[in-house]
C-alpha cells in the first residue's frame, strides 16, 4: 500500500475512533438520564430513603451532599487562596518551595480512598469526631486543597507582572496589591476553578464512606439549631451523601428498588455535575464582563 492510501485509511480510523468517543459519552448520558429521570420526582428528591421496601427517596442524602459541599468549600477556599498567593507571590526559587510544590503534587495524586482512610483515622477516631459531617468536610478539604491551590496559583500567575508593579510603585504592600488588585483581576479563573472543584467534591464518595459515614439518620427539618441532634445543620451527625448512597445501596442489596433508586440518584448527580460545569463557564464569563465593563 502506498503512503497516499495509508493516509486515507489512517484518517478513516481516526474519524471512527473519535466517533466512538462521542458514542461513549452519548451512551453514558442517555443511559443514566433515560433510566434515571423517570424516577426523579419531587417526592423522590424530598423523601428519606427506605430499606427493605420500595418507594424511598434521596431527600436527606441530597441535603447532606450540599451541606458537606458547603462546609468543605468554606474550609478549603480560604486555605487554598492563602497558599496559592504564597506560591505565586512570595515563594522564592529554592529547595523549600520545590518541597512544597512536590507535596502538593503528591497530595493531588493520592487515591481518594487513602484520603478517606486518613480522615477516618485522624478526624473520626483520633479527634473524636466520629462519622460526622465535620470529619467528612475535613476529608473533602484534604482532597480538594491541592487542585484549588494550583488553580489559584495559576490564575494569579496569569495576571501581568505590570499590574503588581503598578501597585507596588504606589507604595502599597505586596499583600495589599495582591488582595485588592491581582485577585479581583484573577477572579474569573479562580471562580471557575472553585466551581469545577465543587463539582468534583459533590460526586466524591471514596473519601467519605469512612468519614461522613454511610448512614443518613432522619432529620427534623423544623429545627435548625446546629446543636440539636436531629437538626439538619448539626455538624456532628453522620451524613451519607448522594454519591455514597449510590455505592451503598448497590453493594448492600437490601433495597428492593436499588437499581431504580441508583439510576434516579445517578441522574441527579450527573445533572448536578452538568450544572456545575456550565455554571463555571457562565459565572466566569459574567464576572469577567462585570470587571472590565462599566462600573
Amino acid at each position: 500500500m502506498n503512503s497516499k492510501k495509508w493516509n486515507t485509511v489512517a484518517t478513516g480510523i481516526l474519524y471512527f475512533i473519535a466517533g466512538v468517543m462521542i458514542l461513549i459519552l452519548a451512551f453514558l448520558l442517555i443511559f443514566i438520564l433515560w433510566n434515571g429521570l423517570p424516577h426523579v420526582s419531587w417526592h423522590f428528591l424530598t423523601t428519606p430513603a427506605r430499606s427493605f421496601q420500595t418507594g424511598g427517596g434521596i431527600g436527606i442524602q441530597l441535603f447532606n451532599s450540599f451541606y458537606l459541599l458547603f462546609l468543605a468549600m468554606l474550609i478549603s477556599i480560604p486555605i487554598s487562596i492563602g497558599a496559592g498567593i504564597y506560591l505565586s507571590e512570595y515563594a522564592k526559587q529554592n529547595w523549600l518551595t520545590s518541597l512544597i510544590r512536590t507535596s502538593i503534587d503528591i497530595l493531588s495524586s493520592l487515591p481518594s480512598i487513602v484520603v478517606g482512610l486518613f480522615g477516618f483515622l485522624v478526624f473520626s477516631i483520633q479527634a473524636g469526631l466520629g462519622f460526622s459531617i465535620l470529619s467528612g468536610a475535613l476529608a473533602l478539604t484534604v482532597f480538594n486543597l491541592p487542585l484549588l491551590t494550583r488553580n489559584v496559583e495559576e490564575s494569579l500567575n496569569s495576571i501581568s507582572e505590570s499590574q503588581r508593579e503598578a501597585g507596588l510603585a504606589l507604595g502599597l504592600s505586596k499583600w495589599e496589591t495582591v488582595l485588592r488588585i491581582i485577585i479581583p483581576e484573577a477572579l474569573p479563573g479562580i471562580v471557575t476553578g472553585m466551581i469545577l472543584g465543587a463539582g468534583r467534591v459533590f460526586g466524591e464518595a471514596a473519601a467519605l464512606i469512612y468519614t461522613a459515614g454511610q448512614s443518613a439518620p432522619a432529620l427534623d427539618f423544623t429545627n435548625w439549631n446546629p446543636f440539636y441532634i436531629a437538626s439538619p445543620l448539626n455538624p456532628l451527625r453522620p451524613a451519607e451523601t448522594l454519591a455514597v448512597h449510590i455505592w451503598k445501596i448497590n453493594s448492600e442489596g437490601i433495597m428492593p428498588d436499588a437499581a431504580q433508586v441508583s439510576a434516579g440518584a445517578s441522574a441527579v448527580l450527573i445533572i448536578a455535575v452538568l450544572i456545575f460545569n456550565f455554571g463555571a463557564r457562565f459565572i466566569s464569563a459574567r464576572v469577567y464582563g462585570k470587571m472590565t465593563g462599566t462600573k
Binding site: 480560604p78 486555605i79 487554598s80 487562596i81 492563602g82 497558599a83 498567593i85 504564597y86 506560591l87 507571590e89 512570595y90 518541597l99 512544597i100 507535596s103 502538593i104 503528591i106 497530595l107 493520592l110 487513602v114 484520603v115 482512610l117 486518613f118 483515622l121 485522624v122 484534604v142 486543597l145 491541592p146 491551590t149 504592600s173 505586596k174 499583600w175 495589599e176 495582591v178 488582595l179
Partner: peptide, 27 residues
C-alpha cells in the same frame, strides 16, 4: 499588612504541607 500577609499565606501553605506529612506519618 505585608507582615500579616506573609504570615497568613505561609500558614495556609504550611497547613497543606503538614497534611501531606501527617498522611504519610499516620498511614
Amino acid at each position: 499588612s505585608e507582615q500579616r500577609g506573609r504570615i497568613i499565606s505561609l500558614t495556609c501553605t504550611a497547613i497543606i504541607v503538614l497534611i501531606v506529612v501527617s498522611i504519610f506519618y499516620f498511614v
